[in-house]
């Protein structure tokens, strides 16, 4: 027998077979991720959904495996509904603030930053994501505390009155920024901002600059060009970014646990109910809420034409 040539070596035969049968290649490539997505991801979501239709026996503390909507009814008890309302309002505000902050940064990066400045942009946006989430939150606790840099700067600028005034307001205020809803809001915006900047930047990158010129040329001053061309075309990016900021805020339990008032958010309730309280059905019902809210949100966004420019 002669030595095998390069043409009929095993790797070459495999690639030859795969080239002739592209469907086999796709099957091989897709099976592992589909198994992961199907079983681990969607599967656990469905078991969660199922759990939420069970209920907890108040006397025995045992889970009753009969399908019922009573756990969902519990969500509408004033104390629970308050938590839902608080979390959703926070998520909405965080999303709006992130979008407003992200747009100019993303716009600059997409339209003007070139070469080295683009690298600086990516580094600047991504760098905070490299360090631990907990470290950043505790750092913010220091920044926002009574002895922290914000109070110090406010005192130096003789603006302490303003800060005190803001903190004395109901709902948003507290003893210091670090134990107020304002503090929770600031930290949420800080940690989720990159997730808004990147998709908006990607969307703006795809807007050809001659569309802006065409709009100017047709008589639309920059404000009108923004409203009629830039914003509609960036909307898929804003929608994608808001899915991140919105759902991440809805589900987070660490930030409001460390920074803010003692009033609970959805994530904290889920944590407490399925951990210490052992009420898995209620925890499941609470975690279904963000899923439903996101589904409704996406449906509304689609109806408003947010994805038309895709």
């Amino acid at each position: 027998m002669t030595a095998t040539t390069a043409e009929d070596s095993l790797p070459s035969r495999i690639s030859g077979t795969l080239w002739r049968r592209p469907k086999l290649l796709i099957l091989l490539l897709l099976t592992p991720p589909l198994l992961w997505l199907g079983i681990v991801y969607v599967g656990s979501l469905f078991s969660l959904l199922l759990q939420s239709f069970f209920s907890l026996d108040d006397f025995t503390g045992q889970i009753q495996y009969d399908l019922t909507l009573s756990t969902y009814a519990e969500l509408f008890r004033p104390s629970n509904f308050d938590i839902l309302r608080r979390t959703v309002v926070m998520a909405v505000l965080v999303t709006i603030a992130s979008a407003i902050l992200a747009f100019p940064i993303a716009y600059y990066a997409a339209r003007y930053a070139k070469g080295r400045w683009k690298a600086v942009f990516y580094l600047g946006v991504m760098l905070p994501l490299w360090s631990s989430y907990l470290v950043k939150i505790y750092a913010w606790k220091m920044i926002l505390s009574k002895e922290g840099i914000i109070s110090w700067v406010a005192a130096k600028l003789h603006l302490s009155v303003l800060l005190e005034g803001w903190l004395s307001l109901p709902e948003v205020g507290g003893n210091s920024l670090s134990v107020s809803s304002t503090g929770t809001f600031l930290v949420f915006v800080y940690i989720w901002l990159p997730y808004m900047i990147l998709p908006v930047q990607a969307a703006l990158e795809r807007v050809p600059s001659n569309l802006i010129e065409a709009s100017y040329d047709l008589g639309a001053a920059p404000a009108k060009t923004f409203r009629h061309v830039l914003l509609p075309m960036a909307l898929p990016g804003v929608a994608a970014g808001s899915i991140f900021t919105f759902s991440l805020t809805l589900g987070d339990y660490i930030v409001p646990g460390i920074i803010g008032t003692s009033r609970l958010f959805i994530g904290q309730v889920v944590y407490v109910q399925q951990g210490t309280a052992g009420n898995i059905p209620l925890a499941a019902a609470f975690s279904v809420v963000p899923v439903v809210i996101m589904a409704v949100y996406l449906w509304l966004a689609k109806k408003q034409g947010a994805f038309d420019a895709l």
Binding site: L218, A220, P222, H228, G305
Partner: peptide, 30 residues
């Protein structure tokens, strides 16, 4: 946007998120 001249661009630069009619009417709309 304050000049009374209009341009036909090399690659047309039509707004992809608008219908043909809205594209044509854009200058009047603004």
């Amino acid at each position: 946007w304050r000049r009374h001249v209009n341009t036909v661009f090399q690659d047309y630069a039509l707004f992809p998120h608008m219908s043909i009619r809205d594209n044509v009417a854009y200058g009047l709309m603004v």
